[in-house]
Amino acid sequence: MIELEDLVKHFGDVRAVDGITLTVPRGEFFCVLGPNAAGKTTTIKMMVGLIRPTSGSARVAGFDLQSQPLEARARLSYVPDFPFLYDKLTPWEFIRFTGQLFRMPEDRIRTEAEELIPRFSLEPWLHKPIEGLSHGTRQRVAIASALLHRPEAFVIDEPMVGLDPHHARIVKDLLRERSRQGMTIFLSTHQIEVAEEMADRVGIIHQGRLMAVGTPEELRRRAGVDGALEQAFLALTRPLDPPGAGTAMAPTGGVP
């Protein structure tokens, strides 16, 4: 469903993403972990077509984000860590607007919204201006809007930021449920416990490279540690030596 092929991105002299190859099949819940400035957000930006890769390609549902952007984006939803919402609209107006942009018929918008709105407890806020909502409520509006058209691939960056434990649970349950129904989920987070709980597979990005991919158990084995996934993460993301120093850990990028 999501295919990244030898994805490279340069920011001037800096190689922010360094040859990532990855395939996330239909219905998989994939979590990506990595330290700050590892290249996770840049990878996501290429994956949703916000920026052009320096080389390599990103495809969603078989459509290349650069050569067939409309087809790819019609099957995709992206929720960034601080999503954009129109402040002067109400949540209902925003949800409907998003549905219309995805060419959903009005009755389908209503049916889908009727399912999502109660799950995210948005009823009290539905007709109030978004500018007056708390960060957590805005986040719920953004996620509900993004799920409205039942995307085939759902890309989300730090979904739990600003959510209370109750709504964090609802988001996790809903994503799990959708994943079981066939939606591919690509979630980027710093919360290792979220990845451990939710993911079918976890990928670890470090210094622009995909260091390891596998189930939490496989990652532990690979890192040679027992216990929490955090230990495996720390072991796999030890600072690399600068390029050319000759002692860098061999990358495993490309393991699907």
Partner: peptide, 9 residues
């Protein structure tokens, strides 16, 4: 959105 550090040039 892909520009690196200006000074680094």
């Amino acid at each position: 959105h892909s520009r690196g550090s200006l000074l680094a040039r």
